[in-house]
């Protein structure tokens, strides 16, 4: 791969990262980049993402929607045209206080000074209390957020497990055993796996065990054989010899499933040795 190609790949990776970060933050198009080439690419990827909206089935809104918008706009314009409220008559000036003696003035000044001092003290105390309360609330919020993150992660894991369980135990689930091929060597020759396909023929779950760690720089990759063509189904991550993969879409007319050892992740067709293969599906009622 030459240097230009690598720079293009880096730029694309940065742009897609930014795009999906902005999607997670609220969905507005990301701010423009100062690098013109990167900005052009960012705009292209933003449009590609935006086009996904068109993959939904279009639906004509009911006339009530336009009517509501019209009413809201009209209401806003009416509100803008509402004449300003009449000005209140000027407040009557307070009558001048009766002439007072210098002693009275000194007493008043002393009282006012004390009141200001007292008020300042109270304000300082209140500000201190408010600061402590804010610090306390801040740390409680931080702890709560941490716990929520942990619970959210656990809840997501639980949902994923429940989903796998529901699929495996679902009605009319199809099961296909994967067995080692002649190309499997060493410990891989003792590996095995099972593919579960839900009755909608879209959701599937693959569980494998007994596989040794993939060679350095390589990964196990799952493929479907559909219509005589191998369709990538994803990389497989192993933990202690076990690995599983689940997805909600599946190609039509799947004839077989197999696992290869691949050294690149962006493959259009399998190129490495095939270690597991299965093509006999059984329906469990």
């Amino acid at each position: 791969m030459n240097r230009d190609r690598m720079a293009d790949d880096d730029r694309a990776a940065r742009v897609v990262e930014r795009l999906f970060a902005s999607l997670e933050e609220g969905g507005a198009p990301p701010p423009a980049s100062e690098d013109p080439a990167e900005q052009a690419l960012l705009r292209e990827y933003t449009e590609v993402l935006g086009l996904l909206a068109w993959s939904s089935r279009p639906q004509a809104p009911s006339p009530a929607v336009a009517e509501s918008i019209r009413r809201e706009i009209a209401g806003e314009q009416v509100a803008e045209r509402v004449p300003p409220r009449p000005m209140r008559p000027p407040a009557r000036r307070l009558e001048s206080p009766p002439p007072s003696s210098p002693r009275w003035l000194a007493a008043l000044a002393a009282v006012l000074a004390l009141a200001v001092l007292g008020l300042s003290g109270s304000l300082v105390r209140l500000a201190g209390e408010q600061e402590r309360a804010l610090a306390d609330l801040g740390s409680r919020l931080e702890r709560t957020t941490e716990r929520l993150d942990q619970w959210s992660g656990a809840a997501d894991r639980l949902v994923a497990l429940e989903e796998r369980l529901a699929l495996v135990t679902g009605p009319a689930v199809e099961v296909c055993a994967l067995r080692p091929t002649d190309e499997a060597t060493g410990r891989a020759a003792a590996a095995r796996g099972v593919l579960y396909v839900a009755d909608d023929h879209q959701r599937w779950y693959l569980a494998l065990e007994g596989l040794p760690a993939a060679p350095e720089g390589a990964v196990y990759h799952v493929w479907f054989l559909a219509g005589g063509r191998a369709v990538s189904a994803g990389d497989l991550e192993l933990r202690a010899g076990r690995g599983d993969l689940m997805a909600h879409t599946m190609p039509d007319a799947v004839q077989a499933v197999f696992v290869t050892v691949e050294s690149a992740s962006d493959l259009l067709a399998p190129s490495g040795p095939r270690v597991l293969y299965g093509d006999e599906a059984m329906t469990i009622l």
Partner: peptide, 23 residues
């Protein structure tokens, strides 16, 4: 990543590859 059981890095790689292909 949590839902699919794939590492976060894998999810990011899949996203990048998908966007490149769509482009």
């Amino acid at each position: 990543a949590e839902h699919t059981g794939a590492p976060l890095g894998t999810v990011k790689t899949r996203t990048l590859l998908a966007m490149k292909k769509l482009r």
